[in-house]
Structures are given as C-alpha cells and as structure tokens.
C-alpha cells in the first residue's frame, strides 16, 4: 500500500501503476468479428484518479475489464506494476454498475465474500471503519433487499476496498443512482481516496462526475475505441460542489461534451446535437 504513495510523490518519472499498451479486443459474434477497442494505450500513475468517458458502445467497459484481467485482450497487454495482467489480481478491486450483492447473504457475509474466495482473513477494524465512513455502521445484519440502491452500492464499494487493493476499477458504479445520491457517493469516494490514495480508474457517462473525481479524463473515440484525447483536471482537492459551478468547470465540461458529440457524429454521419452526450439518469 505504501508503494503507491511513493509512486505518486516521484511523479511521472517512476513506472506507471497501470500501463495499457496497444490494447486491441475483437469479439467473435454471430454476425462477424467486432473490433471493440483498437490499439488503446494509456498510462495511469499510482494514486491517480482517471475517468474514461466516450460515446456509448465505444469499448470503455471492454478496456476496463481487460485492465482487471476479466477479459483477455486479442493483442496488446496490460501491465500492473510492470507485470503483465493475465487474470484477476488481488491488487485490483472492482465495482460494477450493479451492486451485485449476494441476496442470500447479509451485509457482513457479503463483505466477507472476497475473503472466502481468496482464503484470507479480513481486517475487521479496517472494514468497520469503511462501513462507518459510508454510513453503513450497524447494518451488518441486514440483507440486500432491506437496503436502498445507494446503500447497496456503498456496500459494494466497501467490499471492493475491504481487501485493500492498490487499484480500484469502477464500471459506471453510480449510473443507476439518482443525481443527489450520486453526488453524495462522489464525495464519499474522494474522501476515502484522500486517505488511501488508491489508484482509481472510473468509467462514467457523467462528465460532471468525471470532473469532480478525476485527475485526468480520457475521452474515447466511437467504436472501435481508441484514446481520442486526455484532459488534465487542475482543480484543487478536496473538491467542493461549489467548484462545480465555476466557469472553468463549465468550459471543460463543454469541451469534453463537444468532443463526444463529434465522435458520435463521425459514427452516425449525421448531426446529433439533440442527442445529449451525457444521459440524465
């Protein structure tokens, strides 16, 4: 865990935490081969929060799942601390769009799930601290059906952080939540990140969410997905919701939005201004 803090301090000179090199993925479907992502290259520094945005169907999820080792790349590779990722790693935690709590287990047993699989012992103090932080203290005996959508997603976040991964991959984690719950979750993630400095890669459809959380935002092209551009997000942390109302944020949001719309237009070859790049959830 200490390693990512050092990595952050020494900056770009050190080896990137997560390195994606010429990642290409072809799906063999019934209607023929589908090139999902094409020669994506991306370096993610230790302790950095990077968001990936792009038109829907651009291969964001494919890229993220390849980083996690859940998908095998057709060509290219993903390096974690310099070592190739060719399967799920204990260094990587994942949060999916669906909380994916096991409905037959209560909250405690759900958080215990990764440890049962890995055969390791949970750090109770750490987990209790996380539960307190996300406001789930005392809910250990509850079953998923007794928790709201936001609570379930917070539980999923705790479960992903419970085994102290050095990289957290989030696949549209808050996409199914209402706007207010989403802002709350974003603040919660930043707060935890300020303490742990876990490297985070986040896929999102919300440019506001990307700006609020990220150090850098990667815009992907329409399918086949390539890295179209990368934007630095220079705002100081902790970021307040007030920052989100400033001119700078507005401009950055618009720049990214126009880029994504441009990508969509190139794909459909017709103007689609009416089609918002960022769906309101």
């Amino acid at each position: 865990m200490g390693a990512n803090r050092e990595g952050r301090l020494s900056g770009a000179a050190s080896q990137p935490k997560l390195r994606v090199r010429d990642a290409t993925k072809v799906y063999n479907t019934r209607s023929g081969d589908l090139l999902a992502i094409d020669s994506c290259s991306l370096d993610i520094r230790a302790g950095e929060i990077v968001s990936i945005v792009g038109p829907s169907g651009c291969g964001k999820t494919t890229l993220l799942w390849s980083m996690s080792g859940l998908h095998k790349l057709t060509s290219g590779q993903v390096l974690l601390d310099g070592a190739p990722v060719d399967g799920p790693s204990p260094e990587i935690g994942m949060v999916f769009q669906d909380a994916n709590l096991l409905p037959w287990r209560n909250l405690d047993a759900n958080i215990n799930f990764p440890f049962e699989i890995k055969g390791t012992k949970p750090d109770r103090a750490w987990i209790d601290d996380l539960l307190q932080r996300v406001g789930l203290g005392g809910f250990g005996g509850r079953f998923p059906r007794e928790l709201s959508g936001g609570m379930q997603q917070r539980a999923a976040l705790v479960r992903a952080l419970s085994f102290k991964p050095s990289v957290l991959l989030m696949d549209e984690p808050f996409g199914a939540l209402d706007a207010f719950t989403r802002e709350e979750m974003n603040q919660m993630v930043e707060e935890i990140w300020l303490d742990t400095r876990t490297t985070i890669v986040l896929i999102t459809h919300s440019i506001e969410e990307a700006i609020f959380l990220s150090d850098r935002i990667v815009v992907m092209s329409a399918r086949p997905g390539r890295v179209a551009s990368i934007h630095e997000v220079p705002f100081p942390r902790p970021r307040s919701l007030e920052i989100m109302a400033t001119r700078e944020v507005f401009d950055l949001t618009n720049t990214i939005k126009m880029e994504i719309i441009g990508e969509q237009q190139s794909r459909y070859a017709r103007p689609s201004i009416a089609q918002p790049a960022q769906p309101s959830v």
Partner: peptide, 24 residues
Amino acid sequence: GKIALARSYGASTLQIFWKVRAPM
C-alpha cells in the same frame, strides 16, 4: 454480474459453483 464479481476475486469454477450458482 455475480459470476464476474466472483471471478474478479480469482474464484475457481468450483468456488463459483458452490458460492454463487448453487445458492442461487
């Protein structure tokens, strides 16, 4: 989704069977 979750922890096919498929 739940199977992907278990796989992300490195679960074997047998673990996925006993801990996800069977209870479901």
